[in-house]
Amino acid sequence: MASAEIAVDRAALFEFLTRMGDNTLILGHRVSEWCGHAPVLEEDIALANTALDLIGQTQLWLGLAGEVEGKGRNADALAFLRDAAAFRNCLLVERPNGDFGQTLMRQFLFDAWHHVMLTALTKSADPRVAEIAAKAVKEAAYHLERSSDLVIRLGDGTDESHARMQRALDDMWSYVGELFISDDADRAVAAAGIAPDPASLKPEWEAIVSEVLREATLKAPTSAYVHKGGRRGVHTEHLGYILADMQFLQRAYPGATW
């Protein structure tokens, strides 16, 4: 057991780890829905690759969450045998894919946060967290590079691609703020030096996003309204359907080995 765990409430650490792992699991699921349906073959490959990275990170985060919890649940048990209210992903990642612009904008807004978060986590006081972050941050850097590039090109492309990207930004914007709101669990892991306080990530995230949007000739919405709830288990209607799909085999054939 790492020393960090002694200093932090086990429940808060579990909460933090499931938030990380559920974000990657649900976004990986959404991205994987594109498989074979992308607008161009290179995007089919890139999307499968992104989903694969995210599912790989899920295995690490939820694997560690299961260890920390100490109740014998592994990553699969957490992914496939919890119901929606126990999921801790942000609402942004469960937004439906929509058109490719919506998928891309969701990815970009998430990647910018993810990269800033993982960079901070590489300095975590918990070496297990730092180790996962060190692996994941390289993947997230690539995801961010790719999604930024496409947002810029499509924002500054045709009138139609610009309009679609602006609409996607308008639609997704109010789901981002949740990532920067701190609660007791966040404050506990931050106090133990395991993870940054979510609110502290906002300036850097804003710097990345505003620069990309400027180049993309897109305008950030001025509305400050923030949808929230995902990080404490109150989700949109979409998550139930994601889980019905994802958990079908484990639920229909309990105890089977696959």
Binding site: V40, E43, G101, L154, E160, S161, R164
Partner: peptide, 14 residues
């Protein structure tokens, strides 16, 4: 392919 036309056109225009 059809749904992706705007995407491919956008990249080309950029």
């Amino acid at each position: 392919w059809e749904d992706g036309a705007w995407f491919r056109d956008g990249l080309l225009a950029h």
